[in-house]
Write a protein that binds this DNA or RNA. Structure first.
Lengths: 191, 191
DNA sequence: GAAAGTGATGGGACTTGGTCTCATCAACCG
DNA sequence: CGGTTGATGAGACCAAGTCCCATCACTTTC
């Protein structure tokens, strides 16, 4: 594989991020991204299923790691401990290079409805995947839903902090999850 | 207003739901929806900003009610009580007609990625709105995020049950939220 | 070493979502 | 009765995304 100029996919990602940054997502045509990467529209759509996906690559890998992280947490462990295992498992993908591009990527996404939509779907996907993995362990439906949802809250918080301050993502995530748990436990109900 | 055939918007919604049901969302063109409603593509896009929105109308009203429900909960009350106020506040929009069309609408949405994406965005929007409204009451950031997220879990659960069994939505939502709270409180942390 | 195969690419036709502009036409108002 | 208003129709236009076929670099096989 890779008989021609290598890294076509990477070149597309870089070209897209640059162009979105320079002139905005909506003002950038797929053909333009391809051109800057030395390719054509056809080739772009062979690598990414639509215009947005160039910003959301690697999601499949994260999903796999989340599932493995939950399934691989030794029994007996509560649902939230398994979620912690999932967050720790994805830490390997949080490289320095990813941290460097993070803010630029976030800024592009935040500036466009279509992209925010895709991001919401991504997050919901993470939650669903964790919920399903928890149910596979025998966690009851509602508990799985709650634990998975709190896990994604922690994931968002941890990601923000990690972009801000760096450090070991696994540690940041563990702390965030514990804070979320305490906040949830402190909620008063109807009396 | 309404000098020509009235209810253009309603006709479009009905035509869309019928066509999506008959031949699927992707196999239905906007022009076809408009045609069945006795209108044209131009008019369609005057009523809905894109092809999907015909299935997601009324979101603005829900957002308003959620915010009012939280802001209108008398102090002092915990974050989750305010969220309960929000869920109760939207109950007025859950009519019998809406319940009748609910399952068909859900089936169409579930069958298509684009629509599931929009739905995820809608839910995330509810959560964000509640979170912001809670912060306006002085609830700390993280507590607001957790309460809002648990609120949307309860909202989903309540909606499912209400579609299934009917009854007073406010009551169903209250019960769902209490169950969610108990599930969250029962989560064990790292020792 | 030539022929056949393979996989990534180029190119262009085509459909459809979505935007924009201008014309039309029914109702209302003075 | 003539002018205004607001919803609609009509059609040009652009970009996203799909499809199909040609091409070309490299590999395998005989």
């Amino acid at each position: 594989m890779g008989r021609w100029e290598p890294d076509a996919r990477d070149r597309l990602v870089r070209a897209a991020l640059d162009l979105f940054d320079e002139q905005g997502y909506e003002n950038t045509a797929v053909a333009q991204i391809a051109e800057r990467a030395g390719l054509t529209k056809s080739t772009y759509f062979r690598h990414f299923k639509d215009k947005r996906e160039v910003l959301f690559g690697g999601q499949d890998e994260l999903v796999e790691l989340l599932v493995e992280g939950i399934a691989g947490t030794p029994e007996p462990a509560g649902a939230l401990r398994a979620v912690e295992g999932a967050l720790v498992a994805i830490a390997v993908t949080f490289s320095e290079e990813r941290r460097a591009n993070g803010p630029r990527r976030l800024a592009v996404i935040a500036a466009n409805d279509e992209l925010r939509e895709r991001n919401a779907m991504k997050m919901a996907g993470f939650s669903n995947v964790m919920q399903e993995a928890l149910r596979q362990r025998g966690v009851p439906e509602l508990d799985a839903a709650v634990a998975a949802e709190l896990g994604t809250v922690a994931l968002r918080v941890a990601y923000d902090r990690w972009l801000e301050a760096g450090g070991d993502f696994a540690e940041v995530a563990r702390r965030a999850l514990e804070e979320v748990r305490l906040a949830a436990a402190a909620l008063e109900g109807a009396e």
